[in-house]
Write a protein that binds this DNA or RNA. Structure first.
Length: 578
RNA sequence: CGGAGCGUAGCUCAGCCUGGCUAGAGCACUUGCUUUGGGAGCAAGACGUCGCAGGUUCGAAUCCUGUCGCUCCGACCA
């Protein structure tokens, strides 16, 4: 490609719409332009990068034995109702109507469709294992699109769906995808690591997310440098000890605490009850029923865990009015030792308590009466706990549950997610088969997503410097940029440039020739901004000695004889290895 | 949806508080001359429904109301 024939609208200044580095660079390097919030046009250079990432994805999916398909973006709402996700995923569903007013759903993912295919076509255990994948535009009515391609209303996703006859088979399919994902992100040239993850609305019981570490990521990841444990904070647990039991005192007693409505206020004089001897009582409305959640005063409730443990489809904090109606007190004076046991006994309320409180006594909590708290509360004796479970959020510095080393937390971008789904969808959509023993069973599914456009941005977020993008060779829009410092066709400089351009092109290397009649500084700045991995600069000075300059983006410049330039470039590309 | 901020040239922004001449600058764009190893200089030129709609006023980019859009913080996810 010749630069004068390409379309690369670079920007010297940063558009006001961009906040994070990768978004700024996507715009400045001329890869994308915004049409509206969360909707972007991929310009020619952006498309080239996208295709390179997609190619890596396809190669590795194919290598792992998955089969490419292409499913409709417009889907009938009936199959969503059948799976139950018409309600549970309602928030993100784009819906449209055709001329006959029939409603259609714009695909945010395709479990329902592929399972419909499987229901019709997979009738025997002999047809499995099988894994179908596609690369296609997905649509989600995001609450808040942001950061360019990072969270958009439409985005390109690679989604794959495996079908197995047995649970063991499904685990093997899962492992194949897990391994393929590791290879894909490694080949894309980004640091990445898998973490244990929550399964959320998709369902299932086993899941990993692939993360690219970045301060601008939207996920907190808990990890241990000792044993390699890593998990999304929504899922992470630690080996933090339970609350120490003390010598059991007498019955709990009420005491006056006028105006005290926070853990902190109660921890100060004259009360001086440390946060770790308090029980924090929260009221949530889960699927329109009130539930009580008990965590220790110095712990934070993890809402994702709450959803997972209660199996609720929707949960939100109760309003002060709802709380008052239920317990007769306002937030800040709530507790589960009074009034609540009767509500639990009558089945009106369930109490979920964090494991860390198990066996705790001599605790302080609200009295369900404004201005009063209770001291000397023993959980086992005074509170009817419906279910004990892990509900707290892990903090940095807590001991690892596996090896005891101090846990750390970092921000990261989720670029891939693998789920073992089980039979949730195959049961609801009747994807059953005849097993070897003649019985009819639902197939065991897995699903596997990669945010292709998000991956593209995550690569930029990680691979950049003050001058611009620093593309890994595997995904760069062009691998080599040839920069002649004179462009008159009869100049020696341009003739050498043309010759190297022709030779590199003949070798099948993606190369762009900057034939613009611009000053050298201008061309260098543009090349650095766009981030071509290898630059070959040809100027009169060095050419007088028969030499050209080869520079690895972000690396050292070397001088080579112009006749050796092509071989040297090939060598650099081979050294990158991906 | 809740909270905060912003909409003026293709881009970055000034002007608005305290209404008043023809609405400005830099970058980008066009033409010419000079320049030519890290986003050049000079000269000339083209580019605006001041987001949109109503209102107040002799007069609105400026004040008021509504509305639309964008960005950031929170709940959602690849």
């Amino acid at each position: 490609m010749r630069w004068t024939k390409a379309f690369i609208p670079t920007l010297k200044e940063t558009p006001a719409e961009a906040e994070i580095t990768s978004h700024k660079l996507l715009l400045r390097a001329g890869l994308i332009r915004k049409l509206a919030g969360g909707l972007y046009t991929f310009l020619p250079l952006g498309v080239r990068v996208l295709h390179k990432v997609e190619r890596i994805v396809r190669e590795e999916m194919d290598r792992a034995g998955a089969l490419e398909v292409l499913m409709p973006a417009l889907q009938p709402p009936e199959i969503w109702q059948q799976s139950g996700r018409y309600e549970t995923a309602a928030d993100v569903l784009f819906k449209v109507r055709d001329r006959s007013k029939k409603e259609w759903v714009m695909s945010p993912t395709a479990e329902e469709v592929i399972t419909t295919v499987a229901a019709a076509e997979i009738n025997s255990y002999r047809q499995m294992p099988v894994n179908f994948y596609q690369v296609s535009m997905k649509f989600r009515d995001e609450i808040r699109p942001r950061f360019g391609l990072m969270r958009a209303k439409e985005f390109i996703m690679k989604d794959a769906y495996s079908f197995d006859a047995t649970d063991e088979g499904a685990m093997a399919s899962y492992k194949k995808m897990y391994d393929a994902y590791k290879r894909i992100f490694d080949r894309c040239g980004v640091q990445n690591f898998p973490v244990e993850a929550d399964t959320g609305v998709i369902g299932g019981n086993y899941s990993h997310e692939f993360m690219v570490p970045a301060d601008t990521g939207e996920n907190d990841v808990v990890y241990c440098e000792g044993c390699g444990y890593a998990a999304n904070i929504e899922k992470a647990t630690s080996g933090i000890p339970k609350t120490a039991a003390r010598d059991a005192g007498g019955a709990f007693e009420k005491f006056e605490t006028p105006g005290v409505v926070t853990i902190e206020a109660l921890s100060k004089a004259p009360y001086s009850v440390p946060a770790n001897r308090q029980i924090k009582t929260l009221v949530y409305i889960a699927d329109s029923k009130p539930i009580l959640i008990l965590v220790r005063g110095d712990d934070q409730l993890n809402e994702t865990k709450l959803m997972a443990r209660t199996g609720a489809v929707a949960a939100r904090p109760a309003t002060p009015d709802e709380i008052f109606a239920l317990l007769g007190a306002r937030p800040g004076s709530l507790g589960a030792a009074t009034k609540v046991p009767a509500l639990v006994a009558s089945g009106d309320v369930k109490v979920y308590a964090d494991d860390r409180l198990q066996g705790a006594n001599e605790m302080t909590t609200g009295a369900n009466e404004d201005g009063y708290h209770l001291r000397n509360v023993s959980i086992e004796r005074d509170i009817k706990v419906t279910q004990w479970c892990d509900l707290r959020t892990v903090s940095a510095g807590e001991p690892c549950a596996k090896c005891g080393k101090s846990l750390k937390i970092r921000r990261a971008i989720e670029v891939g997610h693998v789920f073992k789904l089980g039979t949730k969808y195959s049961e609801k959509l009747n994807a059953t088969f005849l097993a070897e023993d003649g019985s009819r069973k639902p197939s065991v599914m897995g699903c596997y997503g990669i945010g292709v456009t998000r991956t593209m941005q995550a690569i930029i977020e990680q691979c950049n410097d003050k001058d611009g993008i620093v593309w890994p060779i595997s995904v760069a829009p062009y691998t080599v940029c040839i920069t002649p410092l004179a462009v008159a066709p009869d100049s020696a400089v341009m003739q050498v440039a043309e010759s190297i351009y022709a030779d590199l092109t003949a070798k099948g290397i993606d190369v762009i020739l900057d034939d613009r009649d611009e000053r050298p500084g201008f061309k260098f700045k543009d090349a650095d901004l766009v981030g071509f991995p290898i630059r070959v600069a040809i100027g009169e000075k060095s050419l007088a000695k028969g030499e050209v300059e080869i520079k690895r983006r972000g690396g050292e410049m070397i001088l080579v004889k112009s006749d050796d330039a092509v071989a040297k470039v090939a060598e650099l590309i081979a050294a990158a290895g991906n």
